[in-house]
């Protein structure tokens, strides 16, 4: 990184734009997660199941994020792949209290990792073990084990337990993601 670029970054002008894809089963809390990243005045008050996808923008440090918040309904999961190619990072949201569908989560995750547009790239994946406030929620360690995350070798990943309603755990996760993406961008320069 040249001196000029360093300066620019420091001052926060010429903010880098990056795309992240937000996926996960329906009702896992994707839209709620994205919503809590937005500034107060842009926040939605009433969140309904997504049909198709929504585009939301938010900022973290000096990165301008464009989030593609996809629908997790079974009928629309096939459509995620249309947006794989251009993304710099993935946020994968899991409902930690939904033990029954954890196998479905694993199936979808494996499909995602095997996709030609994803498997070649070393893009960071951030997992939110969401709904940690629910009483029968699994811990993030258990979820990582159930999904076999330790087998992901070629991509940086991170898992945070979160509560999207209060915002707990979200910041930590997204900071990790910002860091990763920034490193990726710098390597390219």
């Amino acid at each position: 990184m040249g001196l000029f670029q360093k300066l620019v970054n420091l001052l926060g002008v010429g903010r880098k734009e990056v795309n992240v894809l937000v996926v996960g089963l329906n009702n896992s809390g994707k839209t709620t997660v994205v919503n809590s990243f937005k500034s107060e005045e842009d926040k939605m008050t009433d969140i309904v199941p997504t049909v198709g996808f929504n585009i939301e923008k938010f900022q973290n440090q000096n990165l301008a994020f464009t989030a593609f918040d996809m629908s997790g309904h079974g009928r629309y999961r096939d459509l995620w792949e249309h947006y794989y190619k251009e993304c710099h990072g993935i946020i994968f949201v899991i409902d930690s209290s939904d033990r029954l569908r954890l196998v479905v989560v694993k199936e979808e995750l494996d499909l995602l990792l095997q996709h030609p547009n994803i498997c070649q790239k070393s893009i960071p994946i951030l997992f939110f073990a969401n709904k940690m406030d629910c009483k029968d929620a699994l811990s993030s360690v258990k979820i990582a084990a159930a999904l076999g995350l330790d087998k992901i070798m070629d991509k940086p990943w991170h898992i945070s337990a979160s509560n999207a309603l209060t915002g707990e755990g979200l910041q930590e996760g997204v900071e990790w993601l910002t860091q990763q993406i920034r490193e990726n961008l710098n390597v390219k320069h």
Binding site: T50, V51, G52, F53, N54, I55, Y76, D78, L79, H82
Partner: peptide, 12 residues
């Protein structure tokens, strides 16, 4: 195909 993908964006 699958044009319903823009449903949420349009409702917004």
């Amino acid at each position: 195909d699958d044009v319903i993908i823009v449903t949420s964006s349009l409702t917004k």
